[in-house]
Design a protein around this nucleic acid. Structure first.
Lengths: 253, 253
DNA sequence: TCCATCTGTTGCATTGTGTGCAACGGTCAT
DNA sequence: ATGACCGTTGCACACAATGCAACAGATGGA
């Protein structure tokens, strides 16, 4: 839409492939050198482009700072919330959203079809980390050494006979969860409560959050709950797509 | 220099602080809504900006992809090389550059004042990881669980009586190195060879490479070599600054 | 040492391009 | 229903971005 900006922005992917000098940039854009110079200058003033000692241009540090700041200010909860509500309405069950932070798994949002309780604090409740379906998904995605170290440090309280008994069993369960891409908690925390959960993945494929649907087995059997899995996964994927900002440049003509 | 591009780029830091709608962007830039719209559209076409479901704008995934690609294509060696040459000329000793990769420390460049040998292959020689000064720096920067796991897996060959004997001693040494920000190898690999090394840090402070100066003690004593430490550190810092693209937007007036 | 050549840089006239305006069409809340 | 608000489009105007040509500085060869 805007030729000048369009040209300037076209420089960025060019430079991402490696440093280039003025002439190369001008040629790639099909413009005069002086034009390319002015564009590069503007990019430079904004720190998006850096001029190295041999006078060639590369992408600048500001770009990384921007990306980082954007990620930090990205609120998964804000983006996820409408999806949680939708899922709550369709299933009628309680929906949770959780994240991993500093050796803990925290609930950061919760929606129940009967009484929607929004937790506004950024710091929510810690989760029963050894048994909750969301915790399994979040921990399964950790780098291997960190995962092992954490598993070794945890306590394994036997909330019910079906709770995860020890680190070995837990690591085994995490491997399974990692493999299949979803998780359950069938009466591991409270005897009569079952959960199914799916991961929300960021642009780089890493699990940024996990979402679960929970219901007491007096209302629905575990099998019925498992039947919701495809829906839960689809919803989690949708959140992930929106969170990642997956938009392939141009709109379809 | 270029008004249009200048305005467009000013949108990015704005959006980094959180999503904003068209009106807010237009106000912040001090332009008409239609102008802001066209700028945002152009940014959108390039994927730098993403439009979420509530029609507000945020930074897009392409920004992260760009940053990532740039980092991958950033060649520490290419940037560092002239600095290594300079250091080699000033000291007359052998200068090494090394990086950490997949549980190994690799030499990726080497300069000797007598016969400058450039290693062109991306895969250089693995380093004696338990004793080399550059290895200590690189491993000292790893996240704690990964560092412990690696230390436990390593062999500790006694190249000389001064070699690091076991994992405990190694981890202790790494703690010291991490603390002081530089490292040495005094006859730990070959009886008569000493090294001093300093870390090259990226924009986020993480150690991306390490550089060392080595000399046999028949030429210079260990003390004389240590006297070069400030110079080595300054050079490593200079490489780090250039690698990070540390340019604070506007030039001083 | 001088000249040739390459790169990045500046001033200027032209016109193409970005701009603001005003009017339109949605959506939401009252 | 009705008003207010936000995003969107078409258009005429003016300004800002463009290409040109000339300059400067570095590099390298003769």
């Amino acid at each position: 839409m805007s030729q000048t900006v369009d040209r300037a922005l076209s420089i960025l992917p060019l430079l991402a492939r490696g440093p280039a000098d003025l002439g190369q940039v001008a040629d790639a854009l099909g413009v005069h050198k002086s034009t390319a110079l002015r564009l590069l200058r503007t990019l430079h003033e904004h720190g998006l482009v850096y001029r190295q000692e041999d006078q060639r241009y590369r992408l600048g540090a500001r770009l990384f700072a921007l990306a980082q700041e954007a990620v930090e200010n990205l609120d998964v909860r804000e983006i996820a919330h409408p999806h949680l509500v939708g899922l709550g309405e369709r299933t009628g069950h309680t929906v949770h959203l959780a994240v991993y932070e500093e050796n803990e798994v925290l609930y950061i949002d919760k929606v129940d079809s009967r009484y929607p309780v929004r937790m506004y604090s950024r710091i929510g409740r810690p989760v029963a980390i050894t048994v909750a379906a969301v915790a399994k998904l979040l921990l399964a995605d950790l780098p291997e050494p960190e995962r092992r170290a954490l598993a070794a440090k945890l306590d394994y309280p036997m909330y019910t006979p079906r709770s995860t008994p020890n680190a070995a069993a837990f690591l085994q369960e995490l491997a399974t969860v990692r493999e299949q891409g979803w998780a359950t908690d069938l009466g591991g925390h409270e005897e009569s409560i079952n959960c199914v959960a799916a991961p929300v993945r960021g642009a780089d494929g890493r699990v940024v959050a996990a979402m679960s649907v929970s219901a007491p087995n007096v209302v629905v059997t575990a099998d019925d709950l498992l039947a919701l899995l495809p829906l839960v996964r689809r919803t989690a994927d949708a959140i992930g797509r929106e969170y990642s900002g997956t938009s392939t440049a141009k709109d379809p003509a």
